[in-house]
Simulated assay, not measured.
Amino acid sequence: MRLNVRSRQALFAAAIGATLVLSGCGKDNDDANSSTGGVTLGFVNGADTEFHTCLQKAVEQTAKQEGAKIYTANSHQDSSAELSNIEDMTSRNVSALIVQTVNVDALKGDIAKAKAAGVPLYLTSVATSDMDDVLGAAVVDLKKAGALDAEWVAKDAGGKKAEVGIIAGAPGAASDLLVGGFKDALPANATVVADQPAMFNPVKAQDVAENMIQAHPKLSYVFVANEEMAFAARKAFDAAGHKDVTIVTVNGTPEGVAAVKDGRFGATVANSAMTIGDTAVKNVLGLLSKKASVDKIANIPLVLVTKDNLNDAPQYCPK
């Protein structure tokens, strides 16, 4: 059947409309401009904590500011879901993929999947020992973050013997590095008497803290792998009549800094999710365009926040 001019024009318009609908699936921003050449980025987040929420917000805002389209997905602490999310992102033909991994052991499969699809992969928070197949990384020295808290404990204890507890996050990624750095930097007079994961879940953290103080009523310090869990632990210790237990933690949110100010926490290590997300997007775009001024690995600054330097904490989350 032959189509007249008007019919061909109608079919062409319908096809264009269908294409626009398909390209808008998922979380994206459609105002890509000439500064990025229509770059489309994928971001696979690892969990649902405040850190991850702020990280995603920073990635989305910076992508929009830079004129790049962005698709996002969340693996909810499931490494198999992470691999599926990466596969989905590569099927969307993204220009590059940013990954906040669930588990560093999962990265080998993630990198291989992205490489096979010809999609450059950029990491946030951690790097791999072999970066040859990775576009780059915005790296947080998580061992140093743990060590900074341990050094504060050492100074605060002043050589006196102290029992120390650890409320970890989810095994396999950030938490392991944080806890390892904390343990390695503890002084000889501080003994770890309890070390339990709470999966970055405040409810579980409260349960862990309640059990910990019952088993070890002489606890002096507790390292908690993020501030959300630390607030839950503080509640449990206070309810049990152990307000003298000193908590050290990580994040540097406004609420966390306020808790340091009023004494609920002894210290926190500021690890700005906003800085990580902003750096990741800008560096991905720079590396894709082969800008010589952009380093493959960007080191994110850390700040130990105590009562003495509350104003030094960087902004944690985009507004």
Rank of each mutant, 00 (worst) to 15 (best):
A233N: 04
L41S: 07
N4Y: 14
F51K: 00
V269F: 06
A73Y: 00
K282F: 08
G46D: 11
K307F: 13
P254N: 07
A267H: 04
I166D: 03
I86T: 03
D176W: 10
I70Y: 03
A280R: 11
R264H: 09
V281T: 09
K143G: 14
V104A: 05
E66A: 13
K113A: 15
K155I: 06
A18T: 14
L11P: 00
E227C: 06
N93M: 05
L55F: 15
G146K: 03
Q9Y: 08
S289W: 02
G180L: 12
G46T: 07
K218D: 15
L178W: 15
M229F: 02
D133K: 14
G252D: 09
V179F: 07
E87Y: 04
Q9D: 13
V224G: 01
A259T: 08
T40A: 12
V305D: 01
T62V: 10
G169S: 05
A174I: 13
V102M: 07
G46A: 10
D195M: 01
F43Q: 03
Q77G: 00
Q100L: 12
I167L: 06
I300R: 03
N201C: 04
G263I: 07
R8S: 12
E228C: 01
L288E: 09
H242S: 07
K319G: 10
M212C: 06
T246P: 00
F237Q: 06
P254A: 11
K296Y: 15
T36R: 04
V257Y: 10
A190N: 03
V203S: 14
Q206F: 10
A174V: 12
S34V: 14
L287W: 13
S129I: 02
K108H: 08
T90Y: 07
H52P: 00
L285V: 12
G26D: 12
V260D: 01
D133T: 05
G136A: 10
D278W: 05
S35H: 11
A190F: 00
A174P: 00
P314K: 03
E228V: 02
T249F: 03
A230M: 05
A18V: 15
H52L: 03
M1Q: 10
A68I: 12
S75R: 02
P120H: 11
N311R: 08
K108S: 14
C317N: 10
E87T: 12
V224C: 04
A32C: 12
G42Y: 14
D28P: 00
V126K: 03
A188L: 11
V269K: 02
F182E: 06
L83I: 13
P171M: 02
P314E: 02
N251V: 09
D141F: 11
L302R: 05
Q56C: 01
I167R: 04
V59F: 13
V260G: 04
